[in-house]
Amino acid sequence: MIKEFTMNSMKRFIPVTLIRGFLDAGKSTLINRLAQGGTLCPEKEDILLLSCEEGETAYDDTCLNQKNITVIGLEDESRLNREYLERLDALYAPKRIILECNAMWDLVEFELPQNWKVEKRIAVLCGPTLGLYLDNMRAFLGPMLSRCDQIFINRCDSGGTGMLSPVKAKLRPLLDDTSAVMIESQGSLYAFDDIRDILPYTLEADPVVITPENYVCWFYDCQDHQNRYKGRRISMNASVKKSPVLGTGGFALGRIAITCCEADMEFLGYMAHYDLIDSIPQFAHVHAEAMVRYRFMQKYNAVMPYLEVLRMEPLNPDDSIVTF
């Protein structure tokens, strides 16, 4: 993410609001709305808006002028360098910065002026095209949504929150637990939990069969909706990860998953207990049936799923990686 340098005590601190989204996602519309409502600038102060592109909706010049917001266009990524931004700082002496840029821009190496600090990160997504981006542009979506304070999903007027049900399970792994997700539909805002769930397996089955294709959906839903799974029996193929710190019979049961791109592979699993785990080799691929329990875990300072394994059978090695 953007490099932020230690602030010189002799310089004023300037907060930066970073707004990212793909072309025509609704970034300008959001900026107009936030400016009109006073969210971006609660007090009348000199604000510098650095804009990367012209979308379908133009800025509301009347509103921006009333709010003392000066717009500077950025032709390309090369303008986001420390030297150029410091010149803008000296020329306009802003009290606040709004940096609006395309999600395709790589912000890893961008350096902000010494006295600029990112205060808030906002991502803007277009509801009708979200599924397409999740399927084909996940490598860009992941970094954009990481560490976001707010995520706006707009243009859901035609189907309301229901139009997002088919993509909810794919979007959930990319969200930080601290991100506030707001969905705009016909002038009203809804929360992420207002999206109706469409689960790819039957909860009424005994056991609930979790296939590799559905594993990631189950993994996150098991955390988010504990009442659905508490006391239910599940059946799945997974891998064993042992550690002596987990105590007698303790281990982790899960699968390797790609959450964003190949560079972001990680083991997604839960703590488990099986009396005969010593007979199962480390990293073995197994078929397991388990009861889903929940217990408070100090490491996460939260109540987390815990798998009480009823039976386990080794399978042939399987290096397959689950995706979304």
Rank of each mutant, 00 (worst) to 15 (best):
Y274D: 08
E43W: 03
L199N: 06
L175E: 08
D61N: 13
K44E: 10
S243K: 09
G249V: 05
T259V: 14
M265Y: 04
V322M: 07
D197G: 01
K117V: 01
G127Y: 00
M265L: 11
S28K: 04
Y215Q: 05
F192K: 04
G142W: 00
I195R: 01
I72A: 07
L88D: 10
V286Q: 01
N68D: 15
I14G: 01
C63H: 06
I69L: 07
F267S: 12
E262V: 09
C222R: 00
D135M: 10
I258F: 05
L130V: 13
L189E: 14
R82G: 04
A93D: 15
I31C: 02
S235G: 06
I258K: 12
H225W: 08
E213G: 11
F283S: 11
A257L: 09
N227E: 15
V240M: 02
C126W: 04
F219V: 04
N32Y: 04
H287K: 14
V167E: 02
M271I: 03
I198F: 05
I258D: 08
W105H: 09
L64P: 02
Q114E: 15
Y220M: 10
R96L: 03
N214E: 06
L50D: 08
M137I: 06
Y306W: 15
G254P: 04
E289W: 00
I2Y: 03
I19L: 10
A58W: 04
M304N: 12
V108P: 02
M1T: 12
S78V: 09
A284E: 10
